[in-house]
């Protein structure tokens, strides 16, 4: 069963590559580089220092903003889910910010915060935290009231209910929130970097000026690989540590 799925996945990827290759060959390199051309360009990119330096600085700045977003977003979302007062206070903010794209915020944030580490961290935080908050809010509202009753009926104190029921029940959702947040964090980070043309975003800007699209696609492919790997890792952790949830969603 698992093998079958892996096979079809692989087949899908191969098919995509073939179609891409054909389309690229038809259109020319300046419009759509072929996978082969991208591979060659990517090879050059990966051998250079600029790529790794850019990737490193992007990743650590993004991680700070992302970690802060989780650190703030998870408790806030849970509080919103469980406490109507907090929900009423914070929900308008979430509704407002969640529709504002990072691209719309970057110019404003540059004016307010300059263009140092703070800018990227702040942009990533703002672009990520509300997705974490809403995910966790929905999750904590959906925690089975029956299980809370079980704990209470066995004499659990509010703190014990929180520690023994709420936290573990929310654990798989924290990982889901982390996964959703990660894609938003990555996207926001690159957007911010493109505005101030540094790091990975700067590389993308510069590659966009080349006649060939191969270097640009190479960078985008790397970004996609990064995102897929990281979310895959989070999914793996979720499946490992929350087998009950994985079994429910058929992820096992």
């Amino acid at each position: 069963m698992k093998k079958m799925r892996a096979m079809t996945n692989l087949l899908g990827c191969l098919l995509l590559l073939v179609v891409w290759q054909a389309a690229g060959a038809e259109l020319s390199e300046s419009l759509l580089a072929t996978p082969l051309q991208v591979f060659v360009a990517l090879n050059d990119t990966l051998l250079g220092n600029a790529f790794w330096a850019a990737l490193g600085s992007m990743l650590w700045q993004m991680s700070v903003g992302y970690a802060l977003a989780l650190l703030v977003g998870v408790p806030l979302g849970v509080a919103m889910g469980r406490l109507p007062l907090v929900r009423a206070l914070v929900k308008p903010w979430a509704a407002m910010f969640i529709v504002v794209s990072a691209a719309a915020l970057v110019p404003l944030f540059i004016l307010l915060l300059g263009r140092g580490v703070l800018l990227c961290v702040a942009i990533v935080f703002v672009a990520t935290v509300w997705f974490v908050v809403t995910t966790m809010m929905e999750a904590s509202r959906s925690v089975s009231p029956n299980l809370l009753d079980v704990a209470r009926s066995y004499g659990a104190s509010p703190l014990q209910v929180f520690r023994l029921v709420l936290l573990p029940a929310l654990h798989p959702y924290v990982l889901i929130a982390a996964r959703i947040g990660l894609t938003h964090a990555l996207r926001a980070m690159v957007t911010a970097e493109m505005f101030i043309s540094t790091g990975y975003g700067g590389l993308i800007n510069d590659a966009g000026l080349d006649l060939s699209t191969a270097p640009l696609f190479g960078l985008i492919v790397m970004l996609m690989l990064l995102s897929v790997t990281a979310t895959g890792l989070l999914r793996w952790v979720a499946n490992r540590t929350a087998p009950w949830y994985a079994s429910r969603t058929g992820d096992h």
Binding site: P107, F195, T198
Partner: peptide, 11 residues
């Protein structure tokens, strides 16, 4: 301070 969008520079 490189800026990608020209009008943002003066701002």
């Amino acid at each position: 301070q490189p800026t990608a969008r020209i009008p943002e520079i003066a701002k």
